[in-house]
Nucleic acid binder design. Structure first.
Lengths: 207, 207
DNA sequence: ACCGGACGAGACGCCACGTCTCGCCGGATG
DNA sequence: CATCCGGCGAGACGTGGCGTCTCGTCCGGT
């Protein structure tokens, strides 16, 4: 059963694909995700609706690919060919974590990223399939940056080897995302620094 | 300018209000938030659409009030007259935190709460006004439970008095919500316990 | 030169939205 | 007890986006 559908990807128009990405990101930034429609994206991109529905199942899927494309392009021009494959390691764990966490703060505060990220997080929390794609393509690589740096610190004796690097990562990123998502307080570099310090030191008083 | 609208709340039908809450929660649980419609809620509740639009601005607002009503009722039958005003204090900070965090885990794992909570979190992350109401009515009281217990621990010398109780709370709740929202791993009592331990102890190795 | 399939454009039925207009009914007032 | 006011259930209505479809057109590979 060939599922009655089989578009030929080799014939796909790169021009249309890019135009759709640009239109989707622009509309979401300008008018918000809720008011953005597939028809609107198609019109802005100068593209037929069918061209969108041929390649994506939903508005959210379009935005996800558009955002991944944006992230890949900005990452490419700002560093190595691939995403954030490498991580800083100056030998000072706290300093390195502060650096990356501050960068995360800046990213979440950037209006260009904030609106699409919120929309995708919202959609992903409701739609498990989209959420899985979002996590795998966007969130997981970012978490790996922290986890690998922490593993290196463990090997160097700078961090407790008994701690699961994954849990340690969530201890840093979780509060940050929580405060951002629920607008429960300001997202500042100072907050990122405090998070690093307390995650490393713990809350128990020192003798 | 009376804004051309002024429904008389004293004449409101309690019967219809409850029926709308029941219908909204049932439909969201059965068919999901996305497929739930205002028309569907009205039909299921045996109510005119106008009765819903007279009292709520949107589907999300209805669900929020319905969920608050549900939470208030279950909290009332399970404890004091008001919400979670009081918190356990056995003198053992770690044990008390484990208890509350495990309860949070159970709540997020309960399908009856999971679906509406996800929907509200999604809507609230996109709609700032609804998000503010959600945070104030639901999230903030829960965070206060942790914060107050931590403050008491600081007064008793069980926790570092220099740490902001609010930040300490986020250190516990943030990772939990993060893992739940992005389905990034299993939500278990063991995870709650590990969170408490590492938040208290920190990641730095002990000499 | 040909041919197939993606393309832009837009028509189509469908459905939920949000507004409106009916009588109806219930509980407050005189 | 009679009156009246306003929320009530019901549903009609215009609007607009959804997702599918059918056109020619155009372009790239054979």
């Amino acid at each position: 059963m060939p599922e009655t559908k089989a578009p030929d990807a080799s014939r796909r128009s790169e021009r249309s694909r890019r135009a759709i990405f640009d239109a989707a990101l622009a509309l979401v930034s300008e008018t918000g995700y809720a008011k953005t429609t597939v028809e609107g994206i198609a019109a802005r991109a100068g593209v037929g609706k069918q061209t969108i529905y041929r390649w994506w199942p939903s508005k959210a899927a379009v935005l996800l690919d558009a955002f991944l494309d944006l992230a890949a392009r900005t990452a490419e021009e700002a560093g190595a060919a691939q995403g954030q494959t490498e991580l800083p390691d100056t030998g000072d764990l706290a300093a390195d974590l502060r650096l990356v966490l501050r960068a995360t703060v800046d990213e979440l505060n950037n209006p260009r990223y904030d609106a699409p990220t919120r929309a995708l997080a919202a959609e992903g929390s409701t739609d498990p399939e989209l959420g899985a794609r979002l996590t795998a393509a966007l969130l997981e690589p970012q978490l790996q940056v922290f986890a690998r740096r922490i593993e290196a610190a463990q090997a160097a004796g700078q961090a407790d080897p008994a701690v699961d690097p994954r849990l340690a990562t969530e201890l840093l990123v979780g509060p940050l995302h929580h405060r951002w998502l629920h607008r429960t307080g300001p997202l500042t570099h100072a907050y990122a620094d405090a998070l690093v310090e307390h995650a490393l030191r713990g809350l128990t008083p020192r003798p």
